[in-house]
Amino acid sequence: MKVSLFITCMCDIFSPHVGKHTVELLERFGCEVDFPSQQTCCGQPAFNSGYLTESKVAMKQMMRAFKDAEYVVGPSGSCVGMIREYPKIFAHDPEWREEAEKLASKSYEITQFLVNVLGVKDVGSTFEGKVTYHPSCHMTRILGVKNEPITLLKHIKGIELKELPIKEDCCGFGGTFAVKNSVISSEMASEKSEHVSETEAEYLVGGDMACLMNIGGRMQREGKKVKTLHITEILNHRE
């Protein structure tokens, strides 16, 4: 099966290791992974700030980049969620509507792809440690991916999963919100950090680097020892 990796600009620049784990995971399950080098950013930073015109040029670039892809898989619920919104955004654009629908229907977040397309529940990995999982808002509410990450984590050997209190609450990232409303944003991150501490977990795991950067940035500032991990880091972990 051919899979085109959608790295997301954030992982490309800040967390390339997440991309490496994603590639290795996909290869482990027999996928042939390529990386269309014309890809850039999904358009979300501009779209969510109200700059529709600016976001659309990014989206068109993405549609061109992945035109020939069979499957598009990325390590972010939020960015893949954005791509899944393209058909709505280009619904009245005869030139791009079809492309938008095509790209949306073949794009998947990595855990969603593993569970729902490849039919994998147990990736056969081992990870020793107390872990709590933060379900990112766009992953769960825009993309509708709620159970897939948990299904995969539960099958990891050695893992001790701890439920995060009020896990459905946003961590406060929200794109430009984190800067425009930084006071509120960091209060939200602080509460999330408190909840992580309540679980006594050693690792905070999530499916979106942006949320992890926010919560992790707060925990680090508070001097906490909890490590943040992208879910692919655990899924691809071998003893």
Partner: peptide, 25 residues
């Protein structure tokens, strides 16, 4: 710049030494 607001109460990660696309290539 915009990171000033972020870093009042939170750390921000440094961009990686090598981008993913460079590594993949």
């Amino acid at each position: 710049g915009p990171l000033k607001e972020w870093t009042v109460n939170r750390d921000f990660p440094a961009p990686a030494k090598e981008t993913f696309r460079a590594w993949f290539k």
